[in-house]
């Protein structure tokens, strides 16, 4: 049942985007979330969509994968769009029934919100699809280094993050095997009404939590037994290196940002 999830999954490849430094991808993905708000007219959105499409094509994974990735979030996007549609009250009234009103501003806003949402999800998906989770954790640790000076536990945070990421597939496998065991005992997941569906998850979640805690204790013991101590002077097997292509990517992104801001005066 988890096999169709694209979000958060790494797809191996050797495209230009795959080879970018994880830090570049992380910074640009976060920056994109803010930059996309500069778009406030049709031209702006065209530029933003074109840039996202170009980035997607550069991953070499095909647009289909990204569209499938957005699908599980459709419901959330739909609700947000509906809220915009009905709660924006400015502009000319197009339709009115009881307490529900649709205005011209509501329509344009909801379209804008929908497109923005879509673009942000797709752009973040580029990061997760083309970067190994551990590389993302390394990137975060590297970017947070300056905070060490004010006593922020950067190494511990990075360790927590990489352990969490490392155990996602393990827990998924375990969830699947517990689910199978409970199905063999007559539990029917994904059948019946919403309450019986929620109830069906209790026999899955309790063993899953108990095993996760046990595993965490064992992992802690194993690390201590091998003399693990926090981050001081640790070297890394995979060293992040900034290369020419990273500079090109950042310049490309700056150009995109400038273009996007420029559309204001169109």
């Amino acid at each position: 049942m988890f096999t169709n999830m694209i979000i958060g999954r790494y797809m191996p490849g050797n495209s230009w985007i795959h080879r970018l430094d994880a830090r570049t991808k992380l910074i640009l993905s976060v920056a994109f979330i803010f930059v996309v708000f500069f778009a406030n007219n049709v031209a702006g959105y065209v530029v933003a969509i074109a840039f996202t499409l170009l980035s997607i094509l550069l991953t070499g994974l095909g647009v289909g994968v990204f569209i499938r990735g957005v699908r599980p979030l459709m419901f959330l996007m739909f609700i947000t769009t509906l809220l915009q549609l009905f709660f924006v009250q400015t502009g000319d009234v197009l339709w009115h029934w009881a307490f529900l009103t649709i205005t011209t501003d509501g329509v344009t806003n909801s379209i804008a919100v929908f497109v923005r949402f879509m673009l942000i999800i797709m752009f973040s998906t580029i990061l997760t699809l083309t970067t190994q989770p551990l590389a993302v954790a390394d990137a975060m640790e590297s970017l947070l280094q300056p905070l060490k000076k004010v006593g922020f536990p950067v190494a511990e945070l990075a360790l927590m993050l990489s352990i969490a990421l490392r155990f996602v597939p393990t827990l998924m496998d375990e969830a699947e095997s517990i689910m199978n065991a409970q199905r063999a005992r007559g539990v029917e997941f994904n059948e019946g009404n919403i309450i019986s569906r929620i109830k069906a998850f209790v026999p899955l979640l309790i063993p899953l939590f108990i095993n996760a805690i046990k595993r965490a204790i064992e992992l802690g013991d194993a690390m201590e037994a091998r003399g693990y101590r926090g981050g001081d002077n640790r070297t890394k097997y995979r060293v992040l290196t900034w290369q020419k292509q990273d500079t090109i990517a950042v310049i490309g992104f700056i150009v995109f940002t400038v273009l996007l801001i420029a559309t204001k005066w169109l």
């Binding site: 375990e174 095997s177 517990i178 199978n180 065991a181 005992r185 026999p203 309790i206 063993p207 095993n211």
Partner: peptide
């Protein structure tokens, strides 16, 4: 069906 390490199904 008794799975491998079936004690993981106790809840």
């Amino acid at each position: 069906l008794v799975f491998q390490f079936p004690e993981a199904q106790l809840f």
